[in-house]
């Protein structure tokens, strides 16, 4: 029945104008956003997509499918047809699903359309904390083991990975207090419920500028242009550079096996979107690094990210399974 109707519809379209394979997209697309409305993934996707829509000549209907650290959306898109009409709009999380025991699907089951941008992590502390630099924090924590409360967003989240990086370099006994996301955790930091918090620069920036929280170090090898006075973490812990650059990222993906024409069209559309001035300005102001990677470059970036992070969380004891089980090479 369905086929018949499609046939009839196709027939009318043939009458109306020639339809051939490269006429992707022939209908509206669906964009499945892994995180909730108003979050950073949501904001990034909703601001880049209108530009991509112009190039595609079709609407991308975006929906937030939250839950399971993004696993619900990832599984949903994976269950759809590989026709390029369902886009996964996600963050870095799926690259850790395997070691965190959240399923067998990660971005290796998808084709990256565009890795749009990467966030820069920064370590911030509450204003009345008795330390003003990373060095002082380390000394204080060692003198008062377990007393420093560090905000966390659950195992595998940015704060847990950055804390693991720091702890791989020095003894840093802190108590991790979990929150639902970096927004609520930063609010708790301002209210004094926690003492320090590794966060993505964009989320902490306005509060730093207003002097409500104080920055200790950016987790990069050099200072960030948005906050030139904040020292890079490598000033204190130079060996941490092996993990860097590291940061959460945002990307658009389609299921593996999607026809190359569709991938090409989508890649061109999102590349144009990421190159638009609006989007660049938004990313700069929020302290994100624009990446705009696709094809092999994107794949290489995803693989390196997964290998660095998986081993880091595994060595820190927060992973459930060894990366070796999945053939993830050591960095």
């Amino acid at each position: 029945m369905r086929r018949l109707l499609v046939g009839a519809a196709a027939l009318t379209m043939v009458v109306a104008g020639p339809v051939v394979a490269q006429d992707f997209p022939a209908k509206d697309l669906q964009g499945i956003i892994q995180w909730g409305a108003g979050g950073s993934t949501d904001v990034v996707m909703r601001s880049v997509t209108p530009h991509a829509e112009e190039v595609l000549g079709a609407d991308v209907v975006m929906q937030n499918k939250t839950g399971g650290v993004g696993a619900i959306a990832t599984k949903f898109v994976y269950a759809q047809k590989a026709d390029g009409y369902t886009l996964l709009m996600g963050a870095e999380n799926p690259q850790l699903y395997k070691v965190m025991g959240l399923g067998d699907i990660d971005y290796s089951s998808f084709v990256p359309i565009d890795i749009l941008a990467r966030g820069v992590p920064i370590l911030v502390a509450k204003n009345d904390a008795p330390y003003g630099t990373l060095k002082e924090l380390i000394d204080y924590a060692q003198a008062h083991p377990g007393e420093v409360k560090v905000g966390s967003t659950g195992p595998g989240g940015l704060p847990s990975v950055v804390t693991a990086m720091l702890q791989s370099q020095t003894d840093l006994p802190m108590t991790a207090v979990p929150y639902d996301g970096d927004g609520p955790a930063l609010t708790a930091l301002m209210g004094g419920a926690i003492d320090v918090m590794p966060a993505v620069l964009g989320a902490a920036l306005e509060n730093i500028k207003a002097g409500r929280i104080k920055p200790l170090a950016v987790i990069e090898t050099e200072a960030n242009p948005v906050l030139p006075d904040v020292p890079p973490v490598t000033d204190t812990l130079p060996d941490i550079a092996t993990y860097l650059p590291w940061g959460p990222f945002f990307g658009v993906f389609v299921k593996e096996g999607t026809p190359p024409e569709a991938v090409e069209k989508l890649t061109a559309a999102y590349r144009a979107g990421a190159e638009s001035d609006d989007f660049k300005k938004l990313m700069d102001e929020r302290g994100y690094k624009l990446m705009n990677l696709s094809g092999e470059e994107a794949r290489a970036f995803l693989d390196r990210w997964q290998s660095v992070t998986s081993w880091l969380v595994y060595d820190a004891g927060i992973a459930k399974k060894s990366p070796e089980e999945f053939g993830i090479p050591k960095p």
Partner: peptide, 23 residues
Amino acid sequence: IPGDAVTAIFIGALFIHGLNPGP
């Protein structure tokens, strides 16, 4: 800081429009 789910989206909207909601 969002007071609820709707104001969280307002914050997102302000970002997109180039305003930086914050203190």
